[in-house]
Design a protein around this nucleic acid. Structure first.
Lengths: 345, 345
DNA sequence: CTGAAAGCGCTTACAG
DNA sequence: CTGAAAGCGCTTACAG
């Protein structure tokens, strides 16, 4: 008998290993090994056939809770992000989800928009044994939270930010910044400003370093008045432009640490009557589908965010939790030249 | 002894109910009832105090797998979406996450970007008992998938789209469309075009209906040449504008079914040398932080997407799975007038 | 080549 | 007011 269901999914009695074993006239241990493809199982072909047939006929699906209890493995990876609305995390999630699925694991994503926003609250919700490990992407993790984490006997890994006592996976944000700035230098720009990310954000820190390095490699000295911080959102970008234009000698080009900020940068420049790229060039880190539909289409540096999410998941699941991980994912970083950058006039 | 940990979270022996019971000199059944706040538990204050102290001292955290196995409840809600990169789903997720947490449940979000993209693949990954119910947001669910779903003895609910045999929660997309079009009518527009969503998307269907209704209520007849479909992305919006401008008498205003499309609409209008709002007004459904930073700042209709996600979660967890649910979430829909709409000249 | 048994950590109905 | 026992559904080391 297959379980019957009704509208909305009425819950009927589950099919268990014992049901399958009875039907196939074997012990449930045998069924278990067949289900899990136990390589050590030596079974007669006709017995296996009976088991497989019963499995199929009853539409057996293992009970995750029972399996987890027995094996002490959840088959689930946790991922904690600041905000689902940030498209950067969307890409990381997608990469992590795919990598987890490849290993037969589910992914459980939580954001700090819930409750008081602390990683701790998310941890409490996870309880004990809901996930086998935790990826912590971006955002600010306080020392207290890191201590709590340490108490949980749970493997973790920082993603897109350094930390975790030498357990992190990042991208080469310095290189991304240098590629952006070198592009501006090659176009002939000499007064290149930087709209950075929020103080304390590790990616912001590394992009700013890359900006300074590229300037110096080009024989220029950085000008503190041309470096302004912000948030990683459009509002922060718009505000930053306001401060930038107060400088006595305004820049001819702006390197923006984040594409969302750049949307605000573009609109603020226009509001100040400056045309892009004729009067000011703009280039930003991270590409998005909408970048080519901005006015003007935005030159960006595309980062391998999916690869980052995928690699982090793999490492979390394979590297022993007491071993350090400090990896820079080396998938290609690509300059996407559109119409927001041009030689200075 | 509290469990010791090392870098990366070395796994140490877990604290179980039995450990706590031993320390508090009671049976583990008592500890269990204290942990779960059993209202029927009659316990001497000093006994409770001993239990609470032991709980705290050992930092006890219930094993989720054991509890799930025993109670046949996962304490987790599943949510299946087409794509994490779509900001509309980000809002729904956030609402669902908060509502789930309020009920002590975790949320497990999966997207169709994994594997072959079918809901079925996600269901297989979920296995048996990983979630207590499933929210299916947007996207296309085939009949085959709906049949599979019915076989799973799992309560489900469609979110933001009708379906599921009378199990869905939606917003009043018709009203949103009428508000947008009425705004254009009040400004004096008479040739109002519609850039719709993808064929088969239920929200697209209802927004288009609202558009037609509003036109007729304003004494106008819809013109098929002014109705073009598209995707819910910038590329679709841009293409749609191209087709719209082939009409002998181009529109003076465009109602766009989705804010992401509208980004493409704005850039395509500019590419065709048409200024917004002087020559063409644009209004779109869904508000985003970036809307006010577009060029020009975009007039939108803000939808209560968080409330939708939250309500769907509540209904999934409370309405018996064999009862129909057909709810329209009535939280306020708001017209946000910015600078992309103006009277025709 | 297959079976029987133990036990993962909980909750709950029942006994006293 | 508290304890003892059964059992959720699985996996695995071991027996034969």
């Amino acid at each position: 008998m297959t379980p019957s269901t009704e509208r909305g999914g009425r819950r009927t009695r589950r099919v268990t290993l014992a049901d399958v074993a009875r039907k196939a006239r074997v012990d449930k241990a045998v069924v278990s090994r067949v289900v899990n493809n136990d390589p050590l199982l030596n079974i007669r072909p006709e017995t296996r056939a009976r088991v497989v047939a019963a499995l199929k006929e009853l539409d057996y699906r293992p009970n995750v809770a029972a399996r987890s209890l027995r094996t002490a493995r959840a088959g689930t990876v946790g991922l904690f992000i600041p905000d689902f609305a940030n498209p950067v995390y969307a890409e990381i999630i997608t990469g992590a989800e795919t990598a987890a699925a490849t290993r037969g694991c589910a992914l459980m994503v939580g954001s700090s928009t819930v409750g008081d926003g602390r990683a701790q609250t998310y941890l409490d919700l996870l309880g004990q044994g809901r996930v086998d490990g935790l990826l912590l992407a971006g955002g600010a993790i306080t020392d207290e939270e890191q201590a709590t984490l340490a108490d949980r006997a749970l493997p973790w890994l920082f993603v897109n930010r350094r930390g975790g006592g030498g357990r992190h996976v990042i991208l080469d944000d310095g290189l991304a910044a240098r590629m952006a700035v070198e592009h501006l230098l090659e176009l002939g720009h000499r007064r290149i400003a930087h709209v950075g990310g929020p103080t304390g954000a590790d990616t912001a820190h590394r992009r700013r370093e890359g900006y300074v390095e590229a300037l110096r490699a080009g024989g220029l000295e950085e000008d503190p008045r041309l470096i302004v911080g912000g948030t990683y959102g459009p509002g922060g970008g718009a505000q930053a432009v306001g401060r930038l234009l107060e400088a006595p000698e305004p820049p001819t080009a702006i390197f923006v640490a984040n594409v969302s900020s750049a949307i605000g940068v573009l609109s603020a420049l226009r509001a100040h009557g400056l045309s892009v790229p004729e009067e000011v060039s703009v280039v930003a880190v991270h590409d998005l589908p909408l970048a080519e539909h901005l006015i003007p289409p935005l030159t960006t540096v595309r980062m391998p965010l999916r690869a980052l999410g995928a690699r982090a998941t793999e490492l979390l699941l394979t590297v022993p939790p007491d071993r350090p991980v400090e990896e820079v994912v080396r998938d290609p970083i690509e300059l996407v030249v559109r119409q927001s950058t041009a030689p200075p006039r």
